[in-house]
Design a protein around this nucleic acid. Structure first.
Lengths: 153, 153
DNA sequence: TTATAAATTTAGAATAATTACATTATCAGT
DNA sequence: ACTGATAATGTAATTATTCTAAATTTATAA
């Protein structure tokens, strides 16, 4: 783990127009090192580093970060909100097997059907199976196909 | 409000492979008549019609509907999941002013950057200002522009 | 430094959202 | 009707989020 007195993080916080604090440094650092965590993941993991951290601080901090444009909120189709340390417009793939969320570039598309709507932000969401899980599932299917056929026979 | 003994709804439920029940009829009917409600909206509104309805029944029912392919879940970027009575693949626009969610057609785009990922479902999400709110906001800006200039002067 | 005001953090309570599981109802085959 | 299997429902517990008000930290300026 990197040292938390990272000057770069501190500057990023200041430049975004909010005050730096240890909690903010910790959480921003955590967000950069972890893929799309939920509030609970942040809280549970960072408690080990900073035992006085409260849940409210986590929620306060991520909300502040979002308002400052440092991160974005990501509601997938299940309960709980995920936080994405990349605030730029991009697309997301979520694996239905392992739940992992992957970032990828937003492809070009045409939005002329949205006449009269003022577009501020776009996000393409895709669900499916990620490469890691595809391999695992293929292996399982191959080994279970014999069982299945014997069941049917 | 329509009568709930609607034969069409009943058939739709049966055809999707699940058993019909009064709660399911009520909730499917509600979903068709309301735009992307949350579990709480469904619960609160339908309690007036059926006071014995429980929150769990709402969650159970929408989950069953989703598995049966009758509806889809929609996590926007805040807490709480919305339910969409249209299970076909389409895109969503959410107004940041009034919160309303609008459906629209998914434009064509290219996903070749997702090599190795098995794509099952796509959903384009767009945030911005809807036509209704644009008009309201324009009106406000015009009336407040004089105040603003006097403040600055 | 030290005083000050404003912003941030905290624990804990309150509320909202969701799920687990025991209970009750329904159905298909006798 | 009766029985076992499956499905539907609601109570209670769990998880997720926000609120409150006091304590601490921060930036600024004397």
């Amino acid at each position: 783990m990197k040292a938390i007195n990272d000057q770069d993080l501190l500057n990023r916080i200041k430049e975004s127009g909010i005050r730096p604090s240890y909690v903010r440094l910790l959480i921003l650092n955590y967000l950069e090192e972890h893929s799309h965590p939920t509030a609970d993941q942040i809280y549970t993991d960072l408690r080990e580093v900073m035992p006085t951290l409260s849940q409210a601080s986590v929620y306060n901090t991520v909300s502040t970060f979002q308002e400052a444009g440092l991160i974005q909120f990501l509601g997938m189709n299940g309960p709980g909100v995920h936080y994405d340390s990349n605030p730029r417009e991009h697309a997301h793939f979520q694996c239905r097997e392992c739940g992992e969320i992957y970032d990828f570039d937003l492809p070009d598309f045409d939005c002329t059907s949205l006449e009269g709507f003022y577009v501020q932000k776009k996000d393409l969401r895709i669900w499916g199976i990620c490469p890691k899980c595809s391999i695992l599932l293929d292996a399982q299917n191959i080994s279970s196909s014999s069982k299945l056929s014997s069941k049917k026979a």
